[in-house]
Simulated scan of single mutants.
Amino acid sequence: MKKITPFMNIVQTLLSEEEVEAVVQAVGYHDKGKKFTVYTLFQFLTHAAAREWESYRAGVDRAILCGLPSVNYSTFSKKAADVPYEVFKRLFEIVAAQCNRSTRRKLRIPSALLLVDSTTITVGQTRLPWAVFHGKRSGVKLHVAYDASANLPAKVVETVATKHDGPMGEKLANPDFIMVENRAYGKIERFDTYATQQQYFVIRIKENMTMTTHRSLQRQVVEHSNVTRDITCRLGTEQCRSEKRHRVVFFQDDHGNEIRVVTNLLHLSAEQIAAIYKARWGIEVFFRWIKQHLNVSRLFGTTENAVYGQLFAALIADVLLQWLYNSTQPFIMKCKSLALVSFVRLFLLGQLSPEWRVAISLLLDRCKLSINPIIG
């Protein structure tokens, strides 16, 4: 591979071949490939996501242009089905941890927000017979904990599409963050558990949720506030009622619709609670981004290894591109600033302006000097 493309340079800087091999050994996979190794597959799959390849066949046809070796598409397919997807999941966790630390920004909210939600990728039923969803569709689901202060996913759990969101949300809980979730995670027992475990949360509740023993909280009048009520109460009916009293904030969205969220944050104003829940839109933007620009909706393979391996490789590509943009954009003059979509397009084409290229070069030089071996 004589040609080193800008994206390949990023990949090789943050994850060397030796580091990937260490993960492969830790998983217990014996890599028999000499020409098409796991590291080569890793580069193929991350390029496939970043450059939106349509299939294995389309990928190998374009591989040489990206500096990747020329192989038959069946080799690509067989390798993807054979390598345990746990390899790519661990690589994602390593890269996410590395990049989240370096791009964390200070929000106006006192604590960091962890936005929790899921997205479903569906295909025809015959494509994934092990993941039948409903009707004539099969599908898998990615349950994501998204770090709002870094604009990057922090943790991801993969399941079939029929898996309910609520229990998976508990696996993504982190006491270092305020968890922000929609109605799918609103279960009374969960609210009590989080309150006992001192896990801060802001979770939307359904309109038909019963509330008893109301007590209004005193608050300062804020001009143009969208908050309509701020109370504490017990949630649920006699058959299923919360053991603890919880705070419920009522506010209106931009369209005048009422939203009710339950929280155990008593030290923040009702307006801050409303702002925290509105920040949940960040994870929706993330899901739209990876589906529109990283090709996650087009699954190449049919086995668990191929499907989940492709998805985690796409998430790695997303983290790398977002990290690169977030880390260099503050050093660019406003007149040369770019939106993320334009930045990614020009970066992959190798057509960024000199200001951006210099900032990226300096960033990579710092990484080569300061990043210790990630594995070990």
Rank of each mutant, 00 (worst) to 15 (best):
A161H: 01
Q252W: 01
F76E: 04
V307L: 11
T5P: 03
I273H: 12
V71R: 04
K278M: 08
T46I: 12
T212Q: 06
A48G: 11
N174G: 11
P354D: 10
Q272M: 13
F251R: 06
Y29G: 00
V132K: 02
V319R: 00
N72V: 15
V180E: 09
I94S: 01
L294T: 01
S118V: 12
N182D: 15
R366S: 05
I276W: 04
L15Y: 02
P330C: 06
I188P: 09
K206L: 09
L41R: 01
S297G: 15
G67W: 02
V140I: 14
T46H: 04
G28E: 06
L217S: 01
K34R: 15
L107R: 13
L113K: 11
A317I: 11
Q272R: 09
L41K: 01
V38W: 05
A96D: 10
L65Y: 13
Q322A: 10
T303W: 08
P84K: 09
A150W: 01
D61S: 15
P167M: 05
E304A: 14
Y325R: 08
T193Q: 15
L91N: 01
K187R: 14
Q322D: 07
H267A: 02
K2N: 14
F88R: 07
Y73M: 03
A50Y: 01
F76H: 08
K3C: 03
G350W: 01
R127N: 06
I231S: 02
F42D: 05
A80D: 11
E243Y: 02
V248P: 05
A359C: 03
L311F: 10
V180N: 05
A131T: 06
H293P: 12
I259Y: 04
V319I: 15
F343I: 04
S149K: 02
V87T: 02
V157F: 04
E52H: 09
Y185R: 14
D165F: 00
L152T: 11
G186Y: 14
F331E: 05
G186K: 12
H164A: 11
T303K: 11
A148T: 03
S111Y: 14
L348D: 02
N257H: 15
K278F: 07
G236R: 14
L340H: 05
S55N: 09
E52Y: 07
V358W: 13
Q125A: 15
K78A: 10
C240V: 09
L369N: 00
P69I: 07
A173F: 06
K78R: 15
W323A: 08
G124L: 03
S102H: 06
Q98T: 14
F347A: 01
E18N: 06
D253Q: 10
D82G: 00
L128M: 13
R101F: 10
A58D: 12
L15S: 07
I375L: 14
K79T: 09
G186T: 12
D176K: 12
D165C: 02
P110H: 09
L265A: 10
K32N: 05
K155T: 11
D253E: 11
V319T: 13
L65E: 15
T210K: 06
D176F: 05
R280E: 12
R241E: 06
K334M: 01
G166T: 05
H293R: 15
P69G: 15
L268R: 05
E238Y: 01
V249I: 13
W53T: 12
V60R: 05
V261F: 13
D253A: 05
V285A: 11
P330Y: 07
L362H: 04
